[in-house]
């Protein structure tokens, strides 16, 4: 009897234990990136810009070229690389603190210049590595270490919707919001990532995948509770789906 392999550990994932907490979405996204990069045969021409944050150690896991950026500056660094080397596929890997707080200017302007880069935007509604402080994407009422009584609108404002904001920027070509909290959503995320990379390969412009990602430790939940919480709470504020798709228009 022949034995068929249905799922194998991705080739581009280094043999190393993740430092992420049990149930974390980062490692799921890392897995997907490895699969997509391998399937699209991009290893020889891709550079990742990881951020400060939990994923600062992404270089320990993804067997591709990486250049770490300062907090929030991913889009500017990616711009520098891409302009020098247009044939390189450049993507940033950024958290919500990185992309939607300190790096808003860099992100919006890179998008507006129609830089041919891709942002993988991991939204887990908190600053993870620093210990679960409030982020611009924190839910209204959500308790964090710096909003211990819950986020209050009149003091701390509303969850910032970067995908929607970027969708009105002319230079963005493809923006999709997905999640990594169920088999179905994980599959959709993988598709979205390959689509975003394809936009860059076709030289069409700026693409971004916003991924809602569970952070059980800082949400103070069990892994499975945190995966459910994405559906129960986050999706209400951050609806999933394709937010902008100008691929056909750009190809004409």
């Amino acid at each position: 009897m022949t034995i068929k392999t249905v799922y194998k550990r991705p080739k581009l994932l280094k043999e190393r234990l993740f430092h992420y907490c049990p149930g974390c979405g980062h490692s799921v996204i890392h897995k997907l990136l490895c699969e997509v990069i391998d399937e699209m045969n991009l290893k020889e021409r891709i550079v990742c810009i990881p951020p400060p944050g939990c994923s600062v150690f992404a270089y320990n896991y993804l067997d591709i070229d990486m250049a770490e950026s300062a907090h929030g500056r991913g889009a500017a660094v990616a711009t520098g690389i891409k302009r020098v080397s247009p044939e390189t596929i450049v993507f940033t890997y950024q958290g919500d603190g990185d992309l939607s707080a300190i790096g808003t200017a860099e992100t919006i302007h890179a998008a507006n210049r129609e830089e041919k880069i891709t942002a993988i935007f991991v939204n887990n509604a908190v600053y993870g590595m620093t210990g679960g402080q409030m982020a611009p994407t924190t839910m209204i009422g959500q308790k964090t270490t710096t909003s211990p009584y819950g986020r209050e609108v009149n003091k701390e404002g509303y969850p910032l919707k970067m995908s929607e904001i970027l969708s009105v920027v002319e230079g963005t070509v493809y923006i999709e919001r997905t999640a990594v909290n169920s088999p179905k959503n994980i599959k959709k995320t993988k598709k979205a990532i390959s689509k975003a990379f394809q936009v860059q390969i076709d030289n069409l412009g700026f693409s971004m995948v916003e991924i809602l990602s569970p952070c059980p430790t800082n949400w103070k939940m069990s892994p499975i509770e945190s995966w459910h919480w994405v559906d129960k709470e986050m999706v209400k504020e951050f609806p999933l789906g394709v937010i902008k798709d100008r691929i056909k228009v750009k190809k004409c």
Binding site: M1, T2, I3, K4, T5, V6, Y7, K8, R9, P10, L13, L17, F18, Y20, P22, G23, C24, G25, H26, S27, V28, K31, S182, P183, I186, K187
Partner: peptide, 20 residues
């Protein structure tokens, strides 16, 4: 039945799936 769901959701890439 080797549906592979466990491997897809496993955050640690700790599961490999085979079909006979």
């Amino acid at each position: 039945n080797a549906c592979g769901i466990c491997a897809i959701v496993c955050p640690e890439a700790a599961i490999e799936v085979y079909r006979e």
